[in-house]
Simulated assay, not measured.
Amino acid sequence: MFTGIIEELGTVEAVEQQSDAIRLSIRAATVLEGTGLGDSIAVNGCCLTVVTVDDGVWTADVMQESLDKTSIGDVRPGDVVNLERAVTADKRLGGHIVQGHVDAVGTVVSRTPSEHWEVVELEVPEGLTRYLVDKGSITIDGVSLTVVETRDNRFTVSLIPETLARTTMGRRQPGDRVNLEVDVIAKHVEKLLSSANLLNQQSLDKLMKESKK
């Protein structure tokens, strides 16, 4: 589990193409402190497993499923990426509960600068906005952010200078693809309500059938 608070920007050293996967090599510092083989690190919001660590560079294998469902396959050597280690029980939950399981890939539509912040508008696949509410949480490329406004298949977030400087959100331009993870609580609530509605409908159908006997 993660919190969406980016610890550092890493640099992609190499992308090794394999038959149905890629091996990603990333240079980092902070996230390697106390990190061992098999540990989890979120890269642009995608949870990856550490395979090797050598002289400030760690590697992870990214399978085809992740390449199909995230923007990880877009990265190239020299790109910077958001990095966060899995949270431990003694740490503050500074952002919100983030699983590192990308729900969809969105697209940056526009950036509107202001004196003290910048508003970024994003487009998401149809149906995803049902999980978004104004002032609710959203994870963009691993960054925990607050939704400002939702409409149709778009939403906006406001970025403070700290976020612009310390994450890749300061570099994203219109047309760029980003990883999105909605609040997992919203997904659980939806499933519970769907199950409850199904049970209620089944009970109602049973009563209707009995009343006709």
Rank of each mutant, 00 (worst) to 15 (best):
Gly4Asp: 01
Thr11Asn: 12
Ala14Tyr: 09
Gln17Trp: 10
Gln18Tyr: 02
Gln18His: 06
Ser19Met: 13
Leu24Tyr: 03
Ser25Lys: 13
Ala29Lys: 13
Leu32Gln: 02
Gly34Tyr: 05
Gly36Met: 14
Gly36Tyr: 12
Gly38Cys: 08
Gly38Leu: 08
Ala42Asn: 07
Ala42Arg: 07
Leu48Ile: 04
Leu48Ala: 04
Thr49Val: 03
Thr49Ser: 03
Val50Gln: 02
Val50Trp: 01
Val53Gln: 11
Trp58Ala: 04
Trp58Met: 08
Asp61Leu: 09
Val62Thr: 08
Glu65Ser: 09
Lys69Ile: 09
Lys69Cys: 09
Thr70Met: 07
Ile72Pro: 04
Gly73Thr: 05
Gly73Gln: 07
Asp74Tyr: 09
Val75Gln: 06
Asp79Met: 04
Leu83Gln: 07
Thr88Glu: 12
Thr88Gly: 13
Asp90His: 12
Asp90Ile: 10
Arg92Gln: 11
Arg92Asn: 08
Gly94Ala: 02
Gly94Asn: 03
Val98Gln: 01
Gly100Asn: 03
Gly100Gln: 02
Val102Met: 00
Thr107Leu: 03
Thr107Trp: 01
Arg111His: 02
Thr112Ser: 07
Pro113His: 00
Glu118Thr: 09
Val120Tyr: 07
Glu123Asp: 14
Glu123Leu: 10
Val124Ser: 05
Glu126Asn: 11
Glu126His: 11
Leu128Tyr: 07
Leu128Asp: 01
Arg130Ile: 06
Val133Met: 08
Asp134Met: 05
Asp134Ala: 11
Ser137Ile: 01
Ile138Arg: 00
Ile138Lys: 00
Ile138Asp: 00
Ile140Cys: 00
Val147Asn: 00
Thr150Ala: 10
Arg151Gly: 11
Asp152Ser: 13
Asn153Val: 09
Arg154Lys: 11
Thr156Lys: 05
Leu159Pro: 01
Glu162Met: 12
Ala165Arg: 14
Arg172Lys: 12
Gly175Val: 00
Val178His: 00
Glu181Cys: 08
Val182Leu: 10
Val182Ser: 08
Ile185Leu: 14
Ala186Asn: 03
Ala186Gln: 04
His188Val: 11
Val189Thr: 10
Leu192Tyr: 13
Leu198Val: 12
Leu199Asn: 12
Gln202Ile: 11
Ser203Ile: 15
Ser203Arg: 14
Lys206Cys: 15
Lys209Cys: 07
Lys213Glu: 15
